[in-house]
Design a protein around this nucleic acid. Structure first.
Ligand SMILES: [Mn+2]
Ligand SMILES: [Mn+2]
Ligand SMILES: [Zn+2]
Ligand SMILES: [Zn+2]
Lengths: 137, 137
DNA sequence: CTTAACTTTGCAACTTGGTTGCACAAAAAA
DNA sequence: TTTTTTGTGCAACCAAGTTGCAAAGTTAAG
């Protein structure tokens, strides 16, 4: 059984305010990665800056991770639970060119890349573009 | 022997104006990918919008390719010549976390990625972060 | 050569995403 | 309760990217 939203926040040492609970609820419902503006749009009346800071806090406290899918707009998605220690977000993101959704592909293994001499790799950021499973069916 | 800048433009069906020649010259000198603001900074007195449109034209006419290296700022680099037909920019980009340069790694092979069922891949965008050869030596 | 048509440039203005300062409200600590 | 810390609302700001429009420059037609 899933911990309550409140418990999720407390676990990550984030004070569970009303605002934060609402945002966490949205992020839990959401299948795809969402941007700040996406988030703002989900409220009838919302303060962009408050939501911005909420996302920032969530990221710092490792509830969510930040995704740059090449669209120029940063998106966020819930971390999978293993994220506690590493918080590396070592997985591929898929951008559907049709429905425009950005999806975390947690299952797909990251490839190994051979860099030229004297280049040291810290991390890989991979975005796959194409048609998603929903649009394909 | 390299074709002149003027010839490079004519080959790609771009009218060789003074402005465009200057920009192409800069891009040819430049080893790393540069942003619009980088480009603006290379002129003592320059119109952002003109340079913007120059880059746009160059991209459309396939003299340069656009790079999203995850910094949130789009950068541009000369296409290698094979680009004529495909213009896919199928290579990895490397971002040095120290000198902040973005480098096209034309040599490195793109890996093959296995996507989940019903996902169709159109293209992969890979950014490797770490320390570049210069900073490492 | 002269005029008309089209292209490029300069300049100002605007949009959007992201970010900050500040004052007030709310909560926690003393 | 008073003090201190934390969160929120609001306005303002910044940078990147983009556009409308008119002037300047080029090319094509008469
Ligand atoms: Mn992800
Ligand atoms: Mn490149
Ligand atoms: Zn889709
Ligand atoms: Zn470097």
């Amino acid at each position: 059984m899933q911990p309550s939203f409140e418990q999720q926040l407390i676990n990550k040492k984030v004070k569970p305010t009303a605002m934060r609970l609402l945002v966490l609820e949205i992020l839990n419902k959401e299948l795809n990665a969402i941007s700040l503006s996406d988030l703002v749009a989900k409220f009838e009346y919302a303060e962009k800056s408050t939501l911005f800071r909420t996302l920032k806090t969530f990221e710092e406290k490792r509830l969510i991770h930040r995704i740059d899918d090449g669209s120029g707009i940063v998106k966020y998605a819930l971390c999978n639970n293993e994220c506690d220690d590493i918080h590396e977000d070592e997985h591929i993101h898929f951008v559907c060119t049709q429905c425009k959704n950005t999806i975390c592909l947690n299952e797909v293994k990251l490839p190994t890349i051979e860099l030229p001499n004297n280049f040291t790799l810290k991390n890989l950021q991979i975005t796959a573009k194409g048609i998603c499973n929903k649009c394909n069916s």
